[in-house]
Amino acid sequence: MLTQERIAHRTIQPPAAETEAVGKPQPSADAVVVDHVSKVFIQKDLLRRKPPKEVRAVDDVHFTVRRKEIFGILGANGSGKSTLIRMMSTLLIPDAGRVSVFGLDVQRDEAAVKRLINRVSVEASFFKKLSPQENLLYALRLYGRSGSAVRREMVEIMEKLGIDGKRLGQPLEQLSRGQQQKVAIARAFLTAPVLLLLDEPTTGLDPRSKIDVQRFVDQLRDEHDATIILCSHDMREAEELCDRIAMLDKGRLIALDTVDGLKRAVGSEIGTADPTLEEVFIHLTGRKIDEEGEDERKDEG
């Protein structure tokens, strides 16, 4: 296995074209431009017994996501995936660099960006005592949707995701984790986002629910002209769904390519014709994806 020093030396830089595209609107169909973005969190001891601890969650990351692409971000817990997603979602302000969505700056054009995006996070994030229907009606009103057509659509999409329409009236806390996550997917879908940010949407789901969600994500891109960014540490999921994959380690972008491209590059280095994505990740980072980063910051991974 590689030592940290060796990893630092052999980090794969994003292709030159990626770097050039950053910062100025290109005549390509870029959906998202992450332009040399960094984010540092300072953890202070309230009683000041210890000096403040600096956690570099995202460190000079830059890449572009093309329109209609399913773009994967792979990394262990604490690698900076969720922090990146939060910056794209207007929920975190970068310390350096900028993020733009379809040419709109996430900070300067916050209101316009919000109309284009939605996000599904690892936690379903609902009012647990309310029913899926009540939760969805609330969320959809915020996006300007209401009325009987919406209620019909709700039932349709839930059934498509394998949830009986009758369950729409039950308190959400009575639904399984997988069912709650499907309601979260439905919430995002019903707002018709142009850019969908999926932050480990299938973590903790049973295999059946996982397949349902993955199939749905695929459909979403094909049928609804959406660009999707998928954060995951599920290699198989990333391999099946993503057009290109960015690998993050300790907040840094260490590789970006198609699955085949990554495999080819690493395969030739380790002397294997067809390495698995997991082998690629281990080779690049020196550890397995389910090992947590040394500097993992709770909830900001």
């Binding site: 609107p25 870029d30 329109r67 040419g103 996006y143 300007g144 707002t191 018709a192």
Partner: peptide, 22 residues
Amino acid sequence: MNESIRPRPNPIAGSGLGHEVR
């Protein structure tokens, strides 16, 4: 914004005073 990178308009996400009141 460059025409080629303009996203399709979100068909539903509202804007304006009416949307805010609703």
